[in-house]
């Protein structure tokens, strides 16, 4: 015990160092790109109507933070994603498990859900705006269904991919229906569920931006699209950077670690 702690203590700083070095080498190329930007815009005297200078984007950032509009857009977009995704997962996981338990039912239904997960997301924008009108309902519906079909399909696949011998093992150790669900089916399908959420959220995010360009008056997509009407490229570029940064945060800080903590430790999947 004592030696192990000692070992950890000795490794501590060097591991922290390695992390810092890793972060720096990761950020360095982005920094170079960022430094190149003003050089190119001034050297070639780029028309701000085509591409903005760094100063202009910075000014747009300061202005939109000061009048609160940036946070209003971000809040609206994230709120829609949160509601749509949460609803989608809550409905999809139980449904997917229920359908996946029987191999007959799941092979029968697989083509159906494959078809619908192909359509999921953006293709529903026209009908969603017809059904719910322009606004929160239509956009949330598009996100919901991008998540719903893909997560259901993946849960279905996940449950039907659980080896029969694991279900047998649990049954012979005395697991009832409830325990079978919480101890075997749910954790067994979890890798696929997480992958499904990651893919579904990727589609949902795109669907969100597209839907906001068409069907609302607040949100990041709307911010971009309105700026286009006035040729305000600095607002567009600012919006793009915000969208990229938000997605990187969601994907790298929320989804990827979740995937690593479960799937890779359990040795269930070898994914990219």
């Amino acid at each position: 015990m004592a030696t192990a702690e000692l070992g950890a203590a000795r490794l501590g700083p060097s591991r922290a160092m390695r992390r810092v070095v890793g972060a720096v080498t990761f950020l360095l190329p982005l920094l170079c790109l960022f430094l190149l930007w003003p050089v190119v815009t001034t050297a070639f005297d780029v028309n701000p109507r085509v591409f903005p200078g760094v100063g202009m984007v910075w000014a747009a950032l300061v202005e939109s933070v000061r009048d609160g509009s940036l946070f209003a857009h971000i809040g609206a977009s994230l709120g829609r994603v949160l509601v749509g995704t949460a609803l989608g997962i809550l409905v999809a996981v139980p449904l997917g498990i229920a359908m996946g338990v029987s191999s007959g039912i799941s092979t029968f239904l697989t083509p159906l859900f494959r078809f619908f997960s192909v359509l999921a997301g953006i293709a529903w924008i026209p009908i969603a705006t017809l059904w719910f009108g322009y606004g929160f309902g239509a956009i949330t519906f598009v996100i919901f269904n991008a998540v719903f079909f893909i997560v259901t399909y993946n849960t279905l696949l996940g449950v039907s991919a659980i080896p029969m011998r694991l279900r047998h093992a649990a049954a012979s150790l005395g697991a009832g229906r409830r325990a079978m669900l919480t101890e075997v089916l749910l954790p067994g399908a979890l890798p696929n569920i997480v992958t499904g959420i990651r893919t579904g959220l990727g589609f949902a995010w795109r669907g969100l931006i597209a839907a906001e360009m068409i069907a609302t008056n607040v949100g990041l997509g709307y911010m971009l699209f309105v700026a286009r009407d006035f040729y305000r490229t600095e607002v567009i570029v600012l919006g793009m950077i915000v969208i990229g940064a938000l997605w990187l945060l969601i994907d790298r800080l929320l989804l990827a670690p979740l995937e690593r903590a479960t799937i890779e430790r359990w040795g269930l999947v070898t994914r990219s």
């Binding site: 080896p163 649990a170 049954a171 150790l173 101890e183 075997v184 954790p187 979890l190 479960t262 359990w266």
Partner: peptide, 16 residues
Amino acid sequence: GADRGVVFQSFALFPW
């Protein structure tokens, strides 16, 4: 049922 314990050829341990 739990009155009959089973040991499987492929182990059947819960990976999670």
